[in-house]
Nucleic acid binder design. Structure first.
Lengths: 218, 218
DNA sequence: TAGATTGTTAATCGATTAACAATC
DNA sequence: TAGATTGTTAATCGATTAACAATC
C-alpha cells in the first residue's frame, strides 16, 4: 500500500550496465572467453571494485584467478536488462530525429524494435522508413491497444509533446522515451525517460569552460 | 601541480541546470517575471530546497517573498552554462543521426552552432544540410586549425570512432560529443561526453520491467 | 506585524572506495 | 604453495534532505 517500488539496482549502476554489455559483446566478437573486472574497468575508465559490485547485481558469478565466463556474463546482463524478451515500440513524430531513430539498426541487437511510426503530416504519412510504416497519428490509439504496445517514443516538438503523451497513456502506453525538452506530467505509474540532447550538450560545454577558465578565480 | 581540476558545480546539479533553463525560458515567453523555487520544483518534479541549492551555484540571488527575477535568473544560468559566448562545432559522420543533428535548430537558442560536417562518402560530400556544408573528412585537420574549432561531434559507426577521435584531437579539438557506443581512449585534457542512445533506452526498459515484475519475488 | 520565501548549517542517505578474507 | 582474482564488510565521500534563521 502506497508502495513506491524501489528498483533493486541503483540508478548509477543501471546506467553503467548497458555500457558494460556493449563492451563485452565487442570482446566476445573478438573471441575473448574469460574476462576480469580489472580489464573491464580499465577499458571503461573505472575501478575494478565498482565493476565487480555492479556485476554482482546481475547475479553473475566469477571465479578467482580467471574472472567471469564472458558468455555467462552476457547472459546475466541480458536477463537483468530485459534484452531476453522482444520489446516493441511506437514512435510519434517523424521529423529528422524520428527518422534517425527509425534508421538506427543497433536497437535490434537488444531485441528492441520500432513497430511503426506516426505523424500528422501528409508529407510523411504513407511512406516507409527502413521498412517501418509511417501512419496517421489518429490511428495510434486503436493500433496501440490492438498490438498491446507498451513503449512509446516522443519525437514531436515541445509544444505538442504533452498532448501526444496524454494520448499515448490513454492508449495503453506505460513507458515513454521522451525527446522533447519538457517535463511531462503524467500518472506516476507511467515511466518516463527523458533524452534531452541540448541539455546533454550543455554539460560538455560547461565541462570545457570549467577546465579552460577554471583557474582564473578560485 | 597534478591539478585534477574539480568542477565547482557537482555533476548532478550540472545536469539539472540546463533543464531549469529550458523551463524558465518557456515561462519567460509566457510573460512570467518572478518565480520561486517551489514553482520550479513543482514543474520539474523536484523539491524546492534542491532547486534553491542548485541555483545558488549560478550566483543568482532571490528575494524573500517574491523569489527570483526571472530575467536575472536566466542571465545567471547563461553565464554559468556558457551560453553567453558563441560555440562552433564540427560534426563527423553524416548518417541519419548526423543529419538529424544538422537539422536540429534548437542548438541556436544556446549560441551553439555546427559550422560544418564531414564524411568520407561521396554520396553526401558536396551536399548542404540545413545550410551547413558536408566536406570530405580529409579536410578536417586543416579547417579545424584554421577556424580554431574546439568542439567535435562524432556520429560515425563504432568501428571508426576511435580513429576519428584521434584525428580530431591532433587537429586541435578539445571537447568531443561522442554518439558512438564505445569508450574513447584519449588524453586526459580532452573532454569527452558520451551520448549512448541504446544504453539510455535500456534504462527505460529496465525501469519498466522492474515495476512490472518487481513484486513476484522480494 | 504576519507570512512567504530565501539562505545556510546540520543530519541523513546512498554510492564509491578501501581493506581484507575466501578460493581457485 | 603462491598468486591472482572474486566476494564482502567497513570507511569514506558527496549529494540530498531537514531544520531553522534571516529578510522583504
Amino acid at each position: 500500500m502506497g508502495d513506491k517500488r524501489i528498483p533493486q539496482i541503483p540508478l548509477p549502476t543501471l546506467k553503467r550496465l548497458p555500457v558494460y554489455y556493449q563492451y563485452l559483446t565487442r570482446q566476445a566478437r573478438k573471441g575473448v572467453t574469460d574476462i576480469s573486472c580489472a580489464s573491464i574497468a580499465k577499458a571503461m575508465g573505472l575501478v575494478a571494485v565498482q565493476v565487480r559490485k555492479d556485476l554482482q547485481l546481475t547475479g553473475a558469478v566469477g571465479r578467482p584467478k580467471t574472472g567471469y565466463r564472458l558468455k555467462e556474463l552476457l547472459e546475466a546482463l541480458e536477463r537483468t536488462l530485459g534484452y531476453d524478451n522482444k520489446t516493441e515500440m511506437f514512435l510519434v513524430g517523424v521529423g529528422s530525429l524520428g527518422k534517425a531513430l527509425l534508421h538506427y539498426r543497433r536497437f535490434g541487437d537488444y531485441n528492441i524494435g520500432i513497430a511503426a511510426a506516426f505523424d500528422v503530416s501528409e508529407d510523411v504519412i504513407g511512406t516507409e522508413i527502413d521498412g517501418k510504416p509511417v501512419l496517421p497519428f489518429r490511428k495510434f490509439p486503436s493500433l496501440c491497444r490492438r498490438l498491446h504496445v507498451k513503449f512509446g517514443i516522443i519525437c514531436v516538438p515541445a509544444e505538442a509533446a504533452q498532448e501526444v503523451a496524454n494520448i499515448m497513456v490513454s492508449s495503453g502506453i506505460e513507458a515513454i522515451w521522451n525527446f522533447a525538452p519538457i517535463t511531462l506530467e503524467l500518472p506516476d505509474m507511467v515511466i518516463v525517460h527523458n533524452e534531452n540532447l541540448t541539455a546533454s550538450l550543455s554539460i560538455l560545454l560547461k565541462k570545457y569552460k570549467t577546465q579552460h577558465t577554471g583557474s582564473e578565480r578560485e
